[in-house]
């Protein structure tokens, strides 16, 4: 196993941060933006018996959170391989 070059590692770290930034933007939008800040206007729309803002706050945001973590894990694991920094 040879130590990866500094620039190689820097590039890996940059890609990691970019992925995390994208996913955390979604995280922010579904919870803080839809569930809290925009809850009143969104409540004008209904989703079955739910007001949409209320639904994001008490249901939707949690479903999205679960998906975000699995997307992150899958993407990072393939990024590790691409940059040859994965374990064994």
């Amino acid at each position: 196993m040879t130590a990866p070059q500094d620039s190689h590692r820097a590039e890996y770290w940059k890609r990691n941060l970019k992925l995390v930034a994208t996913l955390l933007t979604i995280w922010f939008v579904v919870s803080y933006l839809f569930g809290i800040i925009l809850v009143t206007p969104l409540n004008a729309i209904s989703l079955g018996g739910y007001k949409l803002g209320f639904w994001f706050a008490q249901q939707g945001s949690m479903y999205v959170f679960v998906v975000l973590i699995f997307v992150y894990a899958a993407k990072m694991n393939s990024l590790d391989k691409e940059f040859d920094v994965h374990e064994d």
Partner: peptide, 17 residues
Amino acid sequence: GSVFLMGWTGGYVLLAM
């Protein structure tokens, strides 16, 4: 009460990433 729901699940996203 949504603060508990979002707060106690959303932290896992931060923890994982």
